[in-house]
Design a binder for these strands. Structure first.
Length: 469
RNA sequence: GUCCCCAUCGUCUAGCCCGGUCCAGGACAUCGGCCUUUCACGCCGACGACAGGGGUUCAAAUCCCCUUGGGGACGCCA
């Protein structure tokens, strides 16, 4: 095949949810993998529910994911003249007709069909009436009533539908606006889309669209229907499953690379490989490895992948993602060597950027506040001696490196007869306020002599005034 | 109700197309252990699945059928 052209066509009726994001990713990666083109199209023909705010939210989410587009965004509401033209073309060719049946009448037909054990559908009352344009008339597509329509789906194989199951669907509403199954085909044809990757909730629409391609005399695109993403309870993802908006994950401290990795890996595989960078995916993503069954969205796995990507991302690349969380907490952080070191001590201890920012607190705060339990357990009179000794040695230390620091601690250990653990924990609490933190020597080196001495002295004062015998 | 799709550990999946190498491999989670100045990381180990039933075959997770279960679609929404 020549150049692959894919598209992502969200309707701007809400934020971009994880299922939609995965579809966008599949299309984008496939286009990039094949060095094809990726088109963004906003399906806003439902003028009542569509909003600019939603469209902006979708752009924002795609931008965060790093999904860019070669064409668009096209807005269907700006293409109405094209659809009107095509409707007329279809009517003239006898592939569509006006229908004046009211919604109530059609509803009655559906109920009747359902009651007699059939599929609810329009019965074709106006199909042969040869009605002409008039107020409140809709335009229906004259669908074939016999034979079969088959989808040659790349992921599911051939799917056969009896044409008798279909009905004459509406392509233009009584208010003159066109409907989905019609515009999607017109747009895909006119935009040259030759590969359609979408959720498998669309398979039932596909035979109608294929009929439309035929009526319009256009070549069929390749269809790839990917399975749905389900919630923990194996039902379709919805608000009650918690965060669905892609940007909500950004706000929860996830890296776009982790999100991409997780979403693409959900429903697609490449042998046993679990960790993928964006470049890996561009290189390896093909339609052949898309699975056939629906997958459950698993936050734990996303979290694990996020931790992996945080670990794998160099400080300078992580900084822009972490910075908003640092600022949010009021820390005077800025890109540079200090932050690089901070990140290096925290990246193996953080599943999210929020966790990382929270743990970075002691690096930026002027005076540390002690966790009550930590202070009670570790800041006791018996720690006074080692703490004071440490301050003494630290002040005269010229070799302020981990090696030099180790030497000092050894000296203090010998002088007091205490084991490292007995000394390190009080120091840890003095420096960070907590019992859990990065390595004690690393912290001291990064914080610097001044801050360390100050905090150790603060701990000494604390013990003397609060706990002293 | 009708139509369509799906079915391997709790979850994501490899294997299935081209039966034997699978008493089924990896990852997440869980549980142990090791490492260790704390917490993590890392490493090692444990637990844990071919939905059920019929065929076909010397041989089936792999092919066929049925059942069951799950999902989706039936709009003047997309």
């Amino acid at each position: 095949m020549s150049t692959i052209i894919t598209r992502f066509p969200p309707s701007p009726t809400g934020y971009l949810h994880v299922g939609g994001a995965r579809t966008a990713l599949f299309n984008w990666f496939y286009a990039r993998h094949t060095q094809g083109r990726f088109v963004l199209r906003i399906e806003d023909t439902d003028t009542v529910r569509s909003t600019q705010a939603s469209a902006d939210a979708i752009f924002d989410a795609l931008k965060w994911l790093g999904v860019d587009w070669d064409e668009g965004p096209y807005f269907q509401t700006q293409r109405f003249h094209i659809y009107t033209e095509y409707v007329q073309k279809l009517i003239d060719a006898g592939h569509a007709y006006y229908c004046t049946c009211s919604p109530e009448e059609v509803e009655a037909m559906r109920r009747h069909a359902m009651a007699t054990g059939g599929k609810p559908k329009y019965d074709g009352t106006c199909r042969e009436k040869g009605l002409s344009k008039c107020d409140h008339a809709v335009v229906r597509f004259r669908a074939p009533r016999t034979g079969t329509t088959v989808i040659h789906d790349v992921v599911k194989g051939d799917i056969v539908f009896q044409n008798a199951e279909q009905d004459d669907f509406i392509i233009q509403r009584s208010d003159g606006t066109p409907t989905y199954n019609f515009v999607v085909v017109v747009d895909d044809i006119s935009m040259g889309i030759n590969t359609i990757i979408r959720g498998d909730d669309h398979v039932n629409n596909t035979p109608r669209q294929i009929m439309m391609y035929r009526a319009l005399g256009a070549e069929l695109p390749v269809f790839a229907h990917v399975p749905m993403v389900l919630g923990k309870d194996k039902t379709r993802l919805s608000k009650r499953h918690g965060a669905m908006s892609v940007t909500a994950y950004r706000d929860m401290g996830f890296l776009p690379e982790a999100m991409i990795n997780y979403l693409v890996r959900l429903g697609w595989s490449y042998g046993d490989q679990e960790f993928f960078t964006r470049e890996d995916l561009i290189e390896k993503f093909t339609l052949e490895h898309i699975g056939r069954s629906a997958g459950v969205f698993d936050m734990d796995k996303l979290l694990a992948l996020n931790a992996d990507h945080i670990k794998a991302t160099p400080p300078r690349l992580l900084t822009p993602h972490l910075m908003p969380f640092l600022k949010e907490r009021g820390y005077p952080a800025e890109e540079g060597d200090y932050l690089d070191q901070v990140i290096l001590t925290l990246n193996a201890r953080s599943k999210t950027l929020i966790e990382m920012a929270d743990q970075a607190r002691f690096y930026y705060v002027e005076t540390v506040e002690y966790d009550p339990a930590a202070a009670e357990k570790n800041l006791k009179p018996e720690s006074l001696d080692p703490l004071r000794l440490l301050i003494q040695h630290l002040e005269s230390l010229t070799d302020f490196t981990i090696a030099g620091l180790e030497k000092i601690f050894l000296t203090v250990m010998e002088a007091t007869g205490l084991k490292l653990g007995k000394i390190a924990q009080p120091v840890r609490v003095a420096l960070t306020g907590k019992t859990a933190s990065p390595g004690i020597f690393e912290i001291i080196e990064i914080l610097g002599k001044g801050a360390v001495v100050r905090r150790l002295q603060q701990a000494v004062d604390y013990i003397e005034t609060h706990v002293a015998s």
